[in-house]
């Protein structure tokens, strides 16, 4: 760098110190403008246009998923994202695994074994027959299996979805939690 500086003090083109400095300087001169331009162009395309166009498409065609797969219970207020776990403390619901035990800490999924093991507690707390709960869990596993084309994921249970199903099927039992029909709905929370 120092050598380059020295050159700048002198007369360009009359430098006899060697080709090295000259070539670095020439390289700078030749490349500075195109490199800045290419960066700006690419930033406009890849950094701004690309995500914005995708957002536009997503919001138009796939509003539910683009906005985080939020499900609502009363058609207005989202109660959560299908993909994101929420903490359940009351015995009437299936519980997610402690966040410390998962990688993301926010996944709503538990193993079928874990779900079945909780069925008895839920049944006891709600009075819903244990077999019904087990069937709901089974159906949830099946749904996830099909969604994953059977071979692409192990069996798992989405806690939020099972709990929502419980609320939907037993509005009386879950009266304090459910105020309306559960519906999938796009839009902001």
């Amino acid at each position: 760098m120092k050598r380059i500086k020295e050159n700048n003090d002198g007369h360009p083109g009359r430098n006899h110190r060697g080709l090295y400095e000259d070539s670095i300087r020439n390289l700078f001169r030749q490349n500075l403008s195109p490199s800045i331009r290419v960066v700006i162009l690419m930033m406009l395309i890849a950094g701004i246009a690309y995500p914005l166009i995708l957002t536009g498409i997503g919001q138009t065609i796939l509003p539910f998923k683009s906005n985080g797969s939020v499900i609502t219970i009363d058609g207005k207020n989202g109660v959560g994202s299908v993909l994101i776990g929420q903490e359940f403390t009351s015995p009437e619901f299936l519980h997610i695994r402690p966040a410390a035990q998962t990688a993301s800490g926010v996944d709503p999924h538990i193993t079928p074994e874990d779900a079945f093991a909780q069925a008895a507690n839920v049944s006891k707390a709600t009075g819903i027959p244990i077999n019904t709960i087990r069937t709901l869990i089974e159906l949830n596993i099946e749904r996830n299996r099909i969604e994953n084309l059977i071979v692409f994921a192990p069996h798992y249970v989405n806690v939020l979805e099972v709990n929502m199903e419980l609320v939907r099927q037993y509005p009386d039992v879950y009266a304090e939690y459910a105020t309306g029909n559960i519906s999938k709905q796009g839009g902001n929370a």
């Binding site: 998923k65 906005n67 985080g68 797969s69 299908v82 709990n163």
Partner: peptide, 16 residues
Amino acid sequence: GAPQTLESSLTVNTLE
């Protein structure tokens, strides 16, 4: 299922 929005967050009232 991956989201694509300019919103940085959404707030929900959980079941509980």
